[in-house]
Design a protein around this nucleic acid. Structure first.
Lengths: 187, 187
DNA sequence: TGAGGTATGTCAACAACGCTGACATAAACT
DNA sequence: AGTTTATGTCAGCGTTGTTGACATACCTCA
């Protein structure tokens, strides 16, 4: 099958309780765990979005516009990995509904810099609260070392080619130390 | 905001080695990491499915039928968490295309027990191989203790109410010790 | 045996959200 | 001035989720 002969780092589990060989069975369990956890992980915001007639795509746009205020359309496309037409559909709604505002670029007047309006920020908070709550509880229950491992594995799961760029996006914090808006963005 | 006053189980990190404050920033990074990792995680099988005109729903059906050969339609519905009509659409195709076979129940002739045909098992392998490869590499790179933490956090991320049932599904292994088919299925 | 519940399948309609292709406009670059 | 870039939009298609309605076979229990 392909089960055994791979692990480069195969030190056989210091704690004997749960010996960790990379068998197909182990891998399969990881795969399913990821499937079920992700499903529940997205269910909280999904319920809230329903009330607005929005979907997950709206959530993602709102999330990343909040994360990088002033991001350009092209920058957002790059982060989300969807087509212009697909993004435009949800962006159009969010703008029309007054949750997202555009701003013509200063250096390049073709660009549209995106940011959330106060109403947009409201929805962002409502969406992220239950999700943060879920992750917070999971982190608390699992403990600090588990969290570290969780992150490590997820990082390695990302396509190696794009990993650095993605980790750059994840790692950048929006606010310096707690002061205020930072319109950097420069995608 | 809502940052601090929530955690019901906030025991302040018994082991001081790696102080882990659950700031919104920490949580946000976890959330984004999960988003990006899951996106790449699903991309491998997605590419293969395209060649068949199938989508993720087909993959999930194939995966869990392979996992629990003889599962009934109701059992599969329960695992997947979708509607009968939604499942039926992909199941219909898989059956018509000869990847999935039905078998009338012996004890209850209303039931249809599902299993993969040899062709279905072929596709299952083709789909799961790259995904297992990705997880295997990530596990190897991250190391056994990280894997343990990864699993711990994911388990806690699952809805508490359904957690035991879900972990039961994940934990059950298809084959006893390596012998052969086990048409149990029960659920 | 007959009534009622259960397991499955199917038709129809709708919505969210990916995609491709084509085309328009404005602004920048060369 | 001609080309490229950034954005927006129209039109159409496919996958996959949803609800609602209904049919058929089969089991169960009074």
């Amino acid at each position: 099958m392909s089960a055994s002969g791979i692990g480069e780092v195969r030190r056989p589990s210091a704690r004997g309780d749960q010996l960790l060989f990379l068998t197909d069975e182990q891998l399969r369990q990881g795969i399913e765990l990821l499937f079920f956890a992700y499903r529940d992980f997205t269910s909280d915001p999904d319920r809230i979005l329903e009330d607005f007639g929005y979907g997950r795509a709206h959530h993602r746009a709102i999330h990343f516009i909040n994360r990088r205020p002033g991001v350009t359309v092209a920058g957002l496309l790059n982060i989300l990995g969807v087509t212009k037409q697909s993004l435009n559909r949800v962006l159009r709604q969010l703008i029309d509904d007054g949750l997202v505002a555009q701003e013509v670029g200063v250096r390049d007047r073709r660009q549209r810099h995106l940011h959330l309006t106060p109403e947009g920020e409201d929805l962002e908070r409502r969406l992220s609260e239950p999700q943060r709550g879920r992750v917070r509880r999971a982190y608390s229950e699992a403990g600090p070392e588990a969290v570290s491992g969780f992150r490590k594995v997820l990082e390695q799961m990302i396509d190696a080619r794009a990993r650095n760029e993605v980790l750059g996006i994840v790692g950048e914090s929006r606010r310096g130390g707690g002061s205020d808006r930072d319109p950097a963005g420069g995608a």
